[in-house]
Amino acid sequence: MANEMSAHELTQCAALINASISNVFKGLEALGAQVSSIWEQQRCKAKQPDQGDLKPLLAVVRRILDSESLKFHGAGVVFAPGELKDCEMHLQWWCRTQQEAIQPLKLNLNSRSDRFYDYLHMPWYTRPQQTRRPSIEGPFVDLYGTEQYIVAFSLPIFFDDRFIGVAAADISLHSLEPLLVRSLMRISNEALLLNAEGRVLAANTSSWLAGDLIRDTLNQDMEHSRVLSLIDTSSYWSVVERPAPRI
């Protein structure tokens, strides 16, 4: 009976985390749909989109940033090279200030500068492009952007089967972790949320901290642990219940 109860707890926990992740991607799907609508409108006019055509994106981004269930740090669209008429590379991105205002984020996209923000080689951009699937990357420190420890959610945008960029959102791990921990607290044993490299995103015990690498430890007691994969993305997240009481 205890074994069945434990399995039920793990399933409930995973369902709650999956619901939170799905809500993030629903917002990004709406943002991607708005981009596709703009590209379709400009095609009907036989024109290539430029920065001035992107104004409708702000309303969608504002809805994402105003979410009550999760506190987003920033959101927007990152475009593939050459997609806009008036610039080679471009991010249409907004973030929240410490005063809770929403303002555009300006980054250095000059490839000759030592502060060049080369997003073309960043996993949150390349993975959705290559796999055509949603991606969750991190936690990592976004040194050239927000300088916070963040988790990046991104979704590929295709138009006429051509990759035109990603719709993305950043959530600071500091604000995401409490929500994840509340879900993990449903499990009586020690439980962890891990990313693909075996790094801890959240835990229901003080034995592990966000950012800890648990892969070797997990391999040692894998026979007695339960592992449940989360929502299908190109970035593997899983909930792990270890064979130890929660302390």
Rank of each mutant, 00 (worst) to 15 (best):
E4S: 04
E9P: 01
T11I: 13
I17C: 00
N18M: 05
I21F: 15
N23S: 12
V24I: 09
K26A: 06
L28G: 07
L28E: 02
V35F: 00
S36P: 01
S37W: 09
I38M: 12
W39R: 09
R43Y: 08
A46S: 08
P49D: 07
P49F: 11
Q51L: 09
Q51E: 11
G52Q: 13
K55M: 05
L58T: 09
V60S: 03
I64N: 10
K71P: 06
F72V: 09
A75W: 08
F79P: 05
E88L: 12
H90A: 06
Q92A: 10
Q92V: 10
T97A: 12
E100A: 12
L105I: 00
L105A: 10
S113G: 07
D114A: 10
Y117A: 02
D118K: 04
W124K: 03
Y125V: 05
R127T: 02
P134A: 00
P134V: 00
P139E: 03
L143Y: 06
T146M: 02
E147L: 11
Q148R: 05
I150F: 04
I150W: 08
V151T: 07
A152N: 05
F158T: 00
D160F: 01
D160M: 04
D160H: 08
R162K: 08
F163Y: 14
I164W: 04
M185Q: 15
N189L: 11
N189Q: 13
N189H: 13
L193Q: 04
N195Y: 10
V200R: 11
V200D: 12
S206T: 13
S207P: 08
W208S: 13
R215N: 14
R215F: 12
D216I: 10
T217L: 15
N219H: 12
S225K: 13
I231M: 14
S238N: 12
S238W: 02
P245K: 14
